[in-house]
Amino acid sequence: MNYRGVLIALTLFLLGGCSQVEPWVKPYERAHLADPIMSFSRDPVADGYISHIYQVREGARGAEGGHGGGCGCN
């Protein structure tokens, strides 16, 4: 593997974070995104409980990002 190339690419990527990125979705275009129905987890207690149901009965765990349990509760 070309580590030098990877290092240069990574450096350029990180430096890119210093430049001003123009938001491609303007603040006044975010009405739909702000609608409660566009939330990954509208109700953290309810979604955390469903994640808990699966964690107890399935082998897999982690990356339940689609549900969320903002309180950490399950």
């Binding site: 990954f40 987890s41 964690q55 339940e64 990002g65 903002g70 950490g72």
Partner: peptide, 18 residues
């Protein structure tokens, strides 16, 4: 019984809704 406390950590770090 599948012990319930053992699965806490994976749930704890799920991001906030906000």
């Amino acid at each position: 019984r599948r012990h319930l406390g053992a699965i806490l950590p994976a749930l704890f770090l799920v991001s906030h809704t906000a």
